[in-house]
Design a protein around this nucleic acid. Structure first.
Lengths: 230, 230
DNA sequence: TTCCACAGGATTGTATACAATAATACGAGG
DNA sequence: CCTCGTATTATTGTATACAATCCTGTGGAA
C-alpha cells in the first residue's frame, strides 16, 4: 500500500519538498493542471524557486497520493480519472464507509459524538440558509469524524485517500441545492444509529449514504462535473 | 492514497532506483530488517554501490508501498504491523474480496476462468501430496486471478496492496498443513459460484474465505507467526 | 512522396558537494 | 551527583554538474 500509515500528516510544510508537495497537490486538486498533463521538473522548480531535487521527491509523494503517475525516463503525468474509476471508488467506499460506521458504533468517544451532533446541528442551520460552501465543509468534516471514530488507522487512511481522490470530482457536485440537505438528513440518521449502538443499522445507513451520493452525482451529470472541476 | 494506479508494474528493474527499490522490498518482506529498524541512506547506498540519490527515491517508493515510514529530518523506518492492524486489514479485505468476487462474476473472461479452474485442479493435486510451497504459490495466484477478473484497476490495486502488506505475516501461516486444503476447497466453491453467475453467493463465499483465513491465522498463533516472519 | 538515419535539443537519471537539522557526548555550573 | 548548555558528529535536505535516455525534426535515399 501503497502507503497505509499516517504520512502527509507528518509531511512537514516547511521543508522545500513539503512546500512543493502541498502546492502541487492543491493545484492538481483545484484543477489548475489538466488531466494527463505532463509536469516537468525544471519548470516547476523554477516556478517555485527551488532545484529539481525537492521537486523530484515531491513527485514521488504525489505518486504515493495517487495524484500523478511517473513513467521512468519519460515524465510525470496528472492522473486521469475515468467515469468507471469514480464509480468503482464509490462502490468500494460504500462498503468501507459501512464498515467504518460499524466500528465507529463500537469505538466512538464522547467527544467525537458531541462533535458529530454539533456538526449535524450546524449543517441543518446552513442548509436552511442555503450556505452551500459551509455545508460542503461540514459534510467533509462529518466523514472525517467518522473515520477517526472507527479507531482504525488502516481504515481511516484508506477512506481519507479515497475521499481526497474523488474530491476533484465531488467539488461541484455537492454544491447542488437539493443534495446538501438530504445528505445531512442521512448523516443525522447514521448518527442516531451510532448513538443507539445499532451497528448493523449504522453500517447499512452509511452504505446507502454513499450509494445515494453516487446516484445523485450521476444524475447531476458526472461528465460536466469533472470536466470543469475548478 | 496513497497510490491507486499501476506503478510498481512500471517501475523498471534496470534503473538504479528500481534495483534498490526491489532489493529493499525483498529484504523487508523476507524479514532481513527488523520492524522499526532504521534504514540509512549512505549505508544502503554503499552496500549496493550507488549514491544516495537513487536510494532516497527508492525510499519514497517503499513508503508508497507502505513498507517503510519516512520521518522528515530523522530517517526511514521499517513499518511495524500490530496485531490490530492485521485484524483490520483482514476485515477490510473480507469486504473488498467479496466485492471483487461479485465483479469477477460479471466480468471474468473465458481465459481467466480456465486459469482459475487449472489453479484449483493443480492445488488439489499438491494438497494431496502435501506440497506446501506450491500450495502457497497457487493460493496467491488464485487471488491475483480474481483481482484481475474483477476488471477494476482501482479495486485490483487496493487488494494487491493489502495482500502484499500482510504477506510478511501470512508467509508462515499458510504453511499450516490443515489450512491449505481447506483454503483450496473454499476457492473451488468461489469458482463454482462465479461459474454459475451467482454474484451474491460468490461475494458471500469470498467474504467468508477471508474471515476463515484470519480465524485460522489467529488460532495458529498470530504473534509467533509475525515475530519470526523470515 | 515516403521512409529511415542521424543529429540536436530537451528531459530525466545519477553522483557529488554543500547546507541544515538532529543526535550525542562532554564539560561547566549548581 | 545531577542538570543544562554547548560543541561535535552523524544524518538528512538541497543544489548543481554531468550522464543517459527519449523526442523531434531535418535531410538524404529509394
Amino acid at each position: 500500500m501503497k502507503g497505509f500509515d499516517v504520512k502527509q500528516e507528518v509531511t512537514d510544510k516547511y521543508s522545500l519538498r513539503g512546500r512543493v508537495f502541498h502546492k502541487l497537490r492543491d493545484d492538481i486538486l483545484s484543477g489548475k493542471y489538466e488531466e494527463h498533463e505532463e509536469l516537468k521538473e525544471v519548470a516547476i522548480g523554477e516556478e517555485m524557486g527551488v532545484s529539481r531535487t525537492p521537486v523530484r521527491e515531491a513527485f514521488r509523494q504525489l505518486e504515493l497520493e495517487g495524484l500523478i503517475q511517473i513513467i521512468p525516463n519519460k515524465g510525470a503525468y496528472v492522473t486521469g480519472i475515468t467515469e468507471k474509476d469514480v464509480k468503482d471508488i464509490y462502490m468500494i467506499r460504500s462498503r468501507l464507509e459501512g464498515l467504518c460506521a460499524r466500528w465507529a458504533t463500537e469505538n466512538i468517544t464522547k467527544e467525537q459524538m458531541e462533535e458529530m451532533e454539533e456538526n449535524v446541528y450546524l449543517a441543518k442551520f446552513h442548509a436552511d440558509k442555503g450556505h452551500l460552501e459551509q455545508l460542503a465543509e461540514l459534510d467533509n468534516r462529518f466523514h472525517d469524524i467518522l473515520y477517526e471514530a472507527c479507531d482504525s488507522k488502516m481504515l481511516e487512511h484508506q477512506l481519507k485517500d479515497f475521499h481526497q481522490y474523488v474530491l476533484r470530482v465531488r467539488k461541484k457536485t455537492l454544491s447542488n441545492v437539493n443534495r446538501g440537505p438530504k445528505s445531512n438528513e442521512e448523516h443525522e440518521r447514521i448518527m442516531e444509529a451510532i448513538k443507539a449502538k445499532d451497528a448493523d443499522l449504522a453500517e447499512q445507513l452509511a452504505y446507502s449514504h454513499m450509494i445515494n451520493a453516487y446516484d445523485n452525482m450521476v444524475k447531476e451529470g458526472l461528465q460536466e462535473a469533472y470536466a470543469r472541476c475548478e
